[in-house]
């Protein structure tokens, strides 16, 4: 990667890191702080310490990621006009750099790198949360019942699978995200509402009047593709869980599942829906560049 592109990524970090870190750290830290004072309700008898640790680790990782990802996605439309709104666009345009690099760095940072960081932060805090949850439910002695090494190995494998999932999911969601960004760039605050309203109206007209569900089918295909790309592409993890072979057995299979599932998710990229979506995304990216070129 060029120095300039790395600097543009660094610029994103400089501008937004406080907000990102607060979003990633505050919810799990509040749970951790509140844990000694609260209670954990279990329907049945207490599960094994290993299961508690695994649930806490997975829950925290996915929780931190989910909150961070949703907030980032919510902010994406605003990023399309960020530099115009804070009136710094003339400054950035006075420096060397292509529009593609500038917009690309913003997208890469907000849609891919920060969600990946959120996964890592979530996993790190998840280990703390796992120890705290095991202690809370089963007592301090139960910490020795947890095979931390096995948990760590499974955690790393799962984390790598999720990190790949973030990249692939971003490709599936790219047409939707970039369409909203392009609409926001050109139509300002009305961009996102207009695009959503237009999609709903066109989708309903085609569906109800012409009995054509193409809009809903396309949206469903993109969101299902994104879901499969992110996690458990062939529902294998669910099958392993349903076998009920015990937590230790389940954990031992996570590494091989992660590898297989990742390969399946990559293979799923050979989809006309994804390729069509990427064409739409590229067109929307072009609209963003065109808008930025004229933003002075």
């Amino acid at each position: 990667m060029s120095t300039r592109f790395m600097t543009l990524l660094q610029r994103e970090w400089m501008q937004h890191h406080k907000g990102w870190l607060l979003v990633m750290l505050i919810p799990p830290l509040l749970v951790l702080i509140g844990m000694p004072f609260g209670s954990i309700q279990l329907d049945h008898s207490a599960p094994p310490a290993m299961a508690i640790a695994l649930l806490a680790l997975a829950g925290t990782t996915l929780g931190v990621f989910g909150i961070s990802w949703m907030i980032n996605m919510f902010q994406m439309p605003g990023l399309a006009r960020r530099d115009q709104q804070d009136r710094t666009i003339e400054f950035w345009l006075s420096l060397p750099g292509t529009h593609t690099e500038s917009i690309g760095a913003t997208l890469l940072m907000h849609a891919v790198l920060i969600p990946m960081l959120a996964l890592a932060v979530g996993a790190g805090l998840g280990l703390l949360m796992a120890a705290a949850a095991v202690t809370k439910v089963a007592g301090l002695a139960a910490l020795t019942e947890v095979s931390w090494l096995a948990l760590l190995a499974a955690g790393v494998a799962g984390l790598l699978r999720l990190a790949l999932g973030v990249v692939l999911m971003s490709l599936w969601f790219a047409p939707l995200v970039l369409a909203v960004m392009a609409a926001s760039a050109w139509l300002k605050r009305w961009g996102a509402p207009v695009l959503i309203a237009a999609t709903i109206i066109v989708g309903n007209v085609l569906d109800k009047v012409y009995d054509n569900r193409i809009v809903w089918n396309l949206l469903k295909a993109q969101s299902e593709g994104a879901g499969r790309a992110f996690f458990d592409a062939k529902h294998q993890l669910q099958q392993i869980e349903e076998k009920g072979e015990g937590v230790t057995q389940f954990i031992s299979q996570i590494s091989s599942w992660a590898l297989q599932d990742g390969l399946t998710a990559i293979a799923n990229l050979a989809s006309p829906h994804l390729i069509g979506g990427l064409v739409v995304a590229a067109a929307c990216f072009g609209l963003l560049i065109l808008h930025r070129r004229n933003a002075h």
Partner: peptide
Amino acid sequence: LTSLSYIPDVAVLPRW
């Protein structure tokens, strides 16, 4: 732009 220095008319440095 790598070879000249330019201050535009409404240049605002990033406040953050």
